[in-house]
Design a protein around this nucleic acid. Structure first.
Lengths: 193, 193
DNA sequence: TCTTTTCGTTGACATTTAACAAGAAGCGTC
DNA sequence: GACGCTTCTTGTTAAATGTCAACGAAAAGA
């Protein structure tokens, strides 16, 4: 719980009141997920947006050939969920599952709307969050359009060194949009240089 | 001006009051840009976020080899600007220039903050906008990670058929992250199929 | 109108990456 | 500790894509 409070304080650059935080907390439910359990499966509507208190999850699609494509990792103090499905109530294309035993705080669309209209600092936090998400996603998009696979791997090393320790390489490859074999060969090359 | 008003009504699912709209309009200035003129150049801080009333612009980087990488096209009723630079006041990596003679509505960071705190419907509109941007960018990212160049081109045909008419092919290639030659060959193949 | 620039296509070749297959090392589970 | 599963690596071959160069058509500018 404390994690969410620090998070809000940090991203709103304020100190939230106990009353406000109590109201926020009331809109969330705690959910524990064991490794390999799903938060969302393809075809379902995403009913919950989740704040990660502990653990790690991945958001990915599976194509016709059975290959997984990871669009997003969520670790402590990150959010996860399929925003499009959550808002539009459309079936999701994504799967989200736990890579480690995890503890999440879940909020429904109704709960979110309630907080947005009632708690200004929460509203502010969501705006910051969206901005950051948008900027981060745009950066990754730019990277994937204009950089080589090797450059993208080196960028990942710089920006998320923790990911390299925490997730298996074939998942990092999927996240970068390359095959596990290519990543393996790239690593040798980067290492030699 | 009317374009912005319709846009806000549409994305907030409300009808905005004359008073609110007058306040919103007061925060913007009209700017005309002729083809090839810049709204933003690499290294500058992005001082204005822009709503496109008429015309078309592109947001892109130029790499060491002089190759351009287009991350975003903005046409009528779209927004453009480097969000990161605009918020953080950091020098931008991007160039934004007009592909046609264009008319824009510009707003400064101060103007934006003022409206966000004073006009709830504007605030709502910005939230919707951010959400849509985030979702759209995430979709493109997913596409660029998990689809082939040909699939991405076909997707572009489906989602933005107007782009194919409006922008030269080498820019579409840049937007897709492939070389102009590859796009030319892809088109033949798609056409044959 | 004439000239210049931009644009799209095509060919030849190089480079990057994927696909498939095999094997070894590490890990968890029973 | 034995087994099975996951992970990572390596080799080989094929496919996709980039690069360089040339050409002609179209568009823009003078």
């Amino acid at each position: 719980m404390q994690a969410l409070r620090s998070y809000i304080d940090q991203y709103t650059s304020t100190t939230i009141s106990d009353a406000d935080f109590a109201q926020i907390l009331a809109a969330f439910v705690v959910k524990k997920l064991r490794k390999r359990q799903y938060l969302l499966q393809e075809g379902e509507v995403c009913k919950y947006y989740a704040f990660v208190e502990k653990g790690a999850l991945r958001q990915y699609t599976v194509d016709d050939k059975g290959t997984e494509h990871i669009v997003h990792f969520a670790v402590e103090n990150w959010w996860t969920g399929d925003r499009e499905s959550f808002i539009m109530l459309t079936p999701s294309r994504y799967n989200i599952d736990a890579l480690e035993d995890s503890q999440l705080l879940l909020i429904t669309q109704a709960g979110l709307q309630h907080l947005l209209s009632q708690v200004p600092s929460f509203s502010l936090m969501v705006r910051e969050l969206d901005q950051r998400n948008y900027i981060a996603t745009q950066k990754r998009l730019h990277s994937s359009i204009s950089h080589t696979a090797q450059e993208r791997y080196e960028e990942l090393m710089r920006i998320h060194p923790d990911f390299l320790q925490r997730f298996p390489q074939h998942m990092l490859a999927s996240y970068l949009g390359i095959s596990p074999e290519t990543l393996s060969r790239l690593r040798q090359k980067v290492f030699r240089e």
